[in-house]
Amino acid sequence: MIIETPRLILRLWREADLEPFAAMSADPEVMVWLGGVLNDEGVRAYKRRADDAFATLGMCRMVIERRADGAFLGCCGLMPGHEQAPISPYIDIGWRLARSAWGGGYASEAAAAVLKDGFDRLGFPEIIAITAQTNRRSRAVMERIGMRHDAASDFDFPGHEEADPLRATVVYRAARS
């Protein structure tokens, strides 16, 4: 399974992706909105979840590779949403990029292609993205790919303390046209 854009190739995981994914996932700035840095087991578990999700559901967070040089930039894709979220069940679009790839429009380009695939190939009627209320960069990506903030569905993420910046969660939606 491959999704191509003018600058990117989104593809399934390879063992060789674990090293750059581990480096990206050890960067506190990359992981600040994603629950904190991952150790080696967390990195391997992430890849296993992606592999299992694609095998059973036909979707996963796929590797983002830059077409020009094959560089690992991060990952983007669809997964079943967090079961503990009060908006469950839902299909979640998400991404994470290496800091060196920030600001180049790669997240928006990859996410737009994934959104299209979710509607066209997988036939989902709606795809949702969630993030911390204060995560302005991800919210900007959501808006650039045509998702709309659904303030009535915003919620406090279960299990997070009141002062936790990840607690206040915003919901963005996109519907198949």
Rank of each mutant, 00 (worst) to 15 (best):
R48E: 15
M62W: 13
L12I: 04
M24C: 12
L34F: 13
E41M: 05
V37F: 06
D69M: 06
R7V: 03
L34Q: 13
A68G: 02
R11Y: 09
D40F: 07
V43R: 00
Y46H: 14
A50P: 04
F54Y: 15
L12E: 06
P20G: 14
P6V: 08
E65I: 03
P28A: 06
R61L: 13
E19T: 14
F21S: 00
G35D: 07
N39S: 08
P6N: 15
L57I: 02
N39Q: 10
V32M: 11
T5V: 07
N39E: 13
N39R: 05
L38N: 12
L18Y: 06
A55S: 10
D17I: 04
I9T: 12
K47I: 09
L34V: 12
K47D: 01
S25M: 03
M31D: 12
L34D: 06
A53V: 01
V37L: 07
D69T: 08
F54I: 06
L12D: 09
D27I: 01
V43F: 07
A23T: 12
R11G: 00
L8Y: 03
L34H: 14
E15F: 07
A50I: 05
M24A: 15
P20N: 10
W33Y: 10
C60N: 13
T5H: 01
A16V: 09
P6S: 11
V37Q: 12
G42E: 07
Y46E: 13
R49S: 15
V63L: 05
S25G: 11
L34A: 14
A68Y: 02
W13Q: 11
R7C: 05
L34I: 11
E65K: 00
I9F: 08
L8N: 02
F21G: 00
G35T: 07
D52C: 03
L18W: 02
A68W: 04
L34M: 14
R44F: 07
G35Y: 05
E29V: 04
K47P: 02
G35P: 06
R48A: 15
F21L: 14
G42Q: 07
A45N: 10
A45G: 11
E29Y: 03
D17Q: 12
L57E: 05
V63C: 10
E15G: 06
A68K: 03
F21R: 00
A50W: 00
V30S: 01
P20S: 01
L38D: 14
L12C: 11
L18P: 01
A68H: 05
F21M: 15
M62P: 01
F54N: 14
I64F: 05
R66W: 04
T5A: 12
N39Y: 08
D69Q: 06
W13A: 08
V43Y: 07
D52K: 06
M62V: 09
A23Y: 02
E15C: 02
R48F: 10
